[in-house]
Simulated assay, not measured.
Amino acid sequence: MKQILSIVAFFMISAAFAQINYQPGYFISNNGAKTECLIRNVAWKDAPVEFDYKANEGAETQKGLIKNVSEFSVESYKFKRFRASVDRSSTIMDQMSTSAVPEWKTETLFLKVLVEGKVTLYQYEDGNIVKYFFSTGDHSNAEQLLYREYKEDGVINTNTKFRQQLFNLMRDKLADTKDFENIRYRKDALSKLFVEYNGGTGEMKDLTATQNRSSVNFKITPGISMGSVTIEDRLGNGIEFDFKSKPVFRIGAEVEYIMPFNNNKWALFTDPNIQFYKNDGSQGVYNWTMQYKFIELPFGARHYMFLNNDSKLFIDIAFAAVLNVGDCYIQYNEVKRGISKSSNFAAGVGFAHKQYSAEVRYGFGRGLTDLHDTWGATYSSAGLILGYKLF
């Protein structure tokens, strides 16, 4: 198990240095000069203030700074710099304003292009703040589409001026007010509207079609592990025993949420499964038996390292709550102790190819008996989990 743990730790450390992807792109300097180069594509979630680039594969990495660059692009990601008025109102309850009136502040921002055309849609994101902008004409200026949540007498109200802004902007082609009355302040809804408006111009580009999107995967996850239980004496009464490692089979199902940024390299997952461990043994005058059937509910984060379009390595770490099923106990001679509810951390490394995956996962020790007992029991495991993605 120590060897497996060392492998997990190695991959977790290695991930921090993996997957630095430089891809063909360009940037435009303040003087209008366009530079073709390789740009590090990190599929930005938050609006950047700088980016890494190099002239060619063998060249040193340089920084493109917002003060020196008016525009840059790599693959489906394009950012344009604007000096714009921003209302940074929050939708988080304890950070929410008590006024419907926007609090404008002029800032220099890189705005991400979502839909480009006669009227262009942009997104600005910073933590939990997400705002949308548009530009027209020569696209030298960007204006925020105003949506503001605020608290008033304990009730959350909204300033939805953005709907009127959109109607004023697009009524030459979309004259039906129903197109705007219920539109949500969300990327998918706004992008769809801008695509519809720009659709007949011949110059429309929907960059969201190839930008990172969130997705959900469902897998079945059978597996086998070697379970180990150690009995430790807490009062010096000589009650100690190590059960021999024993195969434990599991059947489970995983739900994985792929995050819509950083080239879909990050995911959240839950992997509920059921396992059954039963063992016995003896040492001196003590005869030991135990039965442990449990449902494990891991919740964790996963990082992917892509090898090609179909194959990838991954590492993950999870916190698992554990629920006992039926009669779970540890017994020596005639003394029987129930196994208490528990939890632990787990870490794993794996490989995925198309819809198949295989993972080696180590479950760190979790206590099985209450702290007031004269002796304690710890369960740990290391095993192989196979996965098949249904959709």
Score class of each variant (00 low, 15 high):
Ser215His: 04
Asn182Glu: 12
Met96Tyr: 06
Asp271Glu: 00
Glu107Trp: 03
Glu232Val: 13
Gln62Tyr: 09
Phe319Gln: 01
Tyr329Cys: 01
Phe276Trp: 14
Phe261Gly: 09
Ala43Gly: 15
Gln291Tyr: 07
Met96Asp: 03
Lys54Val: 09
Gln123His: 02
Ile13Gly: 05
Leu190Lys: 11
Phe345Ile: 11
Ser140Gln: 13
Ala15Glu: 09
Phe133Gly: 04
Lys63Pro: 08
Met226Trp: 08
Val115Asp: 04
Thr289Ile: 09
Arg88Pro: 08
Ser245Gln: 12
Pro247Ser: 10
Arg366Tyr: 00
Tyr286Phe: 15
Ser70Arg: 11
Lys265Asn: 14
Tyr124Trp: 12
Met96Ala: 06
Ala16Glu: 14
Ile315Asp: 09
Thr208Gly: 04
Ser381Glu: 04
Ser342Met: 05
Phe79Tyr: 13
Ile251Arg: 05
Glu334Tyr: 13
Ala253Trp: 10
Gly363Arg: 00
Tyr362Ile: 10
Leu146Gln: 13
Ser99Glu: 14
Ala33Leu: 14
Gln19Arg: 00
Val74Gln: 08
Phe10Cys: 13
Gln211Arg: 10
Phe10Ser: 13
Pro247Thr: 05
Phe72Arg: 03
Gln144Met: 13
Phe82Tyr: 15
Arg163Val: 10
Ile129Pro: 00
Gln165Arg: 08
Asp153Asn: 15
Ser73Phe: 04
Lys244Thr: 12
Ser97Met: 09
Asn309Ile: 00
Phe180Met: 06
